[in-house]
């Protein structure tokens, strides 16, 4: 098969060009090093850009992770309120019950126990029905001694929420502030257990009385007939009085 003249020329040109040396054309002022120096800054800009892209992605991932972590840590607690929490709330509510300082003390232990049994009901009712005044609800209550422990970690939060600390409780018990609605003072979640029980003073007295005594005064036996005429004592000496109770204020 005979080649066309055009194709022969094309082939000859291709062969000639393939024999060209790997150098710039003769007489050319081309300097490859100069061109590389011009290119290098632009190439160096590319690398930090690529690195910055990676850094950007890494930073975004870290931020997303932190946000997720924060979200999981600060998620509102939707668990049902445990019995302990309810008890604590009731105790706190009980501590803020406005009481009259001049009301009579309840004398029997059974009454105080009855009150204790009734207090949670009253407190829970108050939480639900805010329109009823606390004074009306605690009618018939006697003065109670209250000792409530507030956890230290929650003290600041409690202050912010308006929860009364023991110092303010004292003033409340003295009748200085009796109109504050109870519902405001109920913390939403109280996880810490109170260290002390709320006990009525009469209950403590009853316990003391019920405690067995070290000596018995009722079973003395008199020995002998004794003298018929008792000698009169010229002067009555002051008798040593030993209180039966060991409490300093009685």
């Amino acid at each position: 098969m005979k080649q066309k003249p055009d194709e022969a020329l094309d082939q000859w040109v291709r062969q000639s060009l393939s024999r060209l040396p790997d150098t710039p054309p003769p007489g050319s002022s081309f300097d490859s090093e100069r061109l590389w120096q011009q290119m290098r800054p632009e190439l160096q800009v590319e690398q930090p850009r690529r690195r910055a892209r990676w850094i950007g992605w890494a930073a975004a991932a870290v931020v997303a992770g932190l946000v997720t972590l924060w979200g999981s840590m600060h998620r509102p607690d939707t668990r049902p309120v445990s019995a302990t929490t309810v008890k604590n709330e009731q105790a706190t509510t009980h501590s803020t019950i406005p009481l009259k300082a001049d009301e009579q003390l309840v004398k029997s232990v059974s009454e105080s126990e009855k009150e204790e049994r009734n207090v949670p009901k009253i407190a829970s009712k108050r939480v639900k029905a805010e329109t009823v005044t606390p004074r009306q609800q605690v009618d018939g209550h006697s003065e109670v001694t209250v000792a409530v422990d507030f956890p230290e970690s929650e003290s600041d939060a409690s202050r912010e929420r308006g929860i009364r600390t023991p110092s303010t409780l004292e003033s409340t018990l003295l009748g200085l502030d009796t109109k504050t609605p109870v519902a405001q003072h109920i913390p939403k979640q109280t996880k810490a257990k109170p260290r002390f029980k709320v006990v009525h003073e009469n209950e403590l007295k009853a316990e003391e009385e019920a405690r067995p005594k070290l000596y018995q005064t009722g079973n003395f036996v008199r020995l002998g007939t004794g003298q018929l005429h008792e000698t009169e004592q010229p002067e009555r000496q002051p008798a040593l009085v030993i209180p039966l109770t060991n409490k300093p204020n009685q």
Binding site: L20, D22, T23, P24, P25, S28, F30, S32, L35, W36, M39, R40, L43, Q44, E46, Q47, R50
Partner: peptide, 23 residues
Amino acid sequence: RGNAFAQKRLYDQYVNRLFRVSL
């Protein structure tokens, strides 16, 4: 991998040939 030394070597290997193409 962005190795500048390799880029220079590749450039040196083909720069004159490609300059002729461009020309």
